[in-house]
Simulated assay, not measured.
Amino acid sequence: MAEEKKSKLYALKPLIERWPAITKPEGHVTFRTKIFWTLLCLILYFILTNVMIFGLKSNVIDLFAQYRFIMAGASGSIMHLGIGPIVTASIILQLFVGAKIINLDLTESEDKAIYQGTQKILVVVMIIVEAIPQIFGYLQPTEGLINLLGGNTALANSLIVIQLFVGAMLVFFMDELISKWGIGSGISLFIAAGVSRAIFTGIFNWLPVRGGELSMTNPPAGVIPGTYYLASHLTLREIVEGGYQTLFFGNARIGYTNSIVAL
């Protein structure tokens, strides 16, 4: 009878047992070791967020660019998907188990192992599900990449999907590495890192809003350098006649949104 009550997910057990995974520590992990792996993954994460997708057009359409840091992603980079697939897979599986659609008792070690293994497989599925739609109107290959591949647009799109897949898998393995050998959760660490970077660059970024040379219509993007630049180039009359609105509330027309009020 006990065998009949087992979840159908046990059919995945042979695959789960062969699935690549980070080895668990056999004994106590020292604090120095935890710090080492946590910092290593954090540094690697920041490096990967600056590795742009090869062959991608510069005018990337990302409807959620301003909020992508919440999912520890970086628009246009191989970390574009961030922790999205991991979180989605976890939520789906938790809902199915909680609703008893999947018959698993997480208090049992064997069922818990099947649950965790299934989640890893589902993460890979969600990476593919989330990566493929990106090439339809959002992340498009350059003409140079298409020509390099003999004019095969499908192959160029596939190359972009592969890069997204590799980036998301690296996030997944780093999350698992931190969970087993580091401090806390990799997901929480990457979210905190993404938010911290967004705050830091939003305050101190001295680069122009739209690139190129600095001007009154293309000020520094950061709050502090942007406010200083605008205030030092505006006359008192210009400030009174409306310049204060740009200083305090920003100016969407020129793309300057990191204003004093935003800070």
Rank of each mutant, 00 (worst) to 15 (best):
M1E: 09
E4F: 08
L9N: 00
Y10A: 05
Y10K: 05
L15V: 03
I16G: 09
E17W: 11
I22S: 02
T23I: 12
G27E: 07
V29I: 12
F31P: 05
T33N: 09
L39C: 06
I43L: 13
L44Y: 05
I47T: 05
L48G: 00
I53Y: 12
F54K: 10
K57W: 05
F64A: 12
Q66A: 15
Y67P: 00
A74H: 10
S75M: 08
S75G: 02
G82C: 04
G82L: 01
P85R: 03
L93T: 02
Q94R: 15
K100D: 13
I101K: 15
L106I: 07
A113L: 14
Q116F: 12
T118F: 13
T118W: 03
Q119R: 15
Q119N: 15
V129Y: 11
E130K: 14
E130N: 15
A131K: 07
I132Q: 08
I135Y: 06
Y138H: 14
G144V: 02
I146N: 01
G150C: 12
T153P: 13
N157D: 07
N157T: 03
S158P: 02
F165V: 03
V166S: 09
F172E: 04
D175C: 15
I178D: 04
I178F: 01
S179Q: 15
S179C: 14
W181D: 08
W181I: 04
G182N: 00
S185A: 10
I187H: 06
I187S: 13
I187Y: 13
G194A: 01
V195M: 08
F200M: 11
G202V: 04
L207C: 07
L214R: 06
P220S: 04
A221I: 04
L230F: 00
H233T: 02
H233C: 02
T235R: 02
E241C: 01
Y244V: 09
T246F: 00
F249M: 07
A252C: 08
G255M: 00
N258M: 06
V261E: 08
V261N: 10
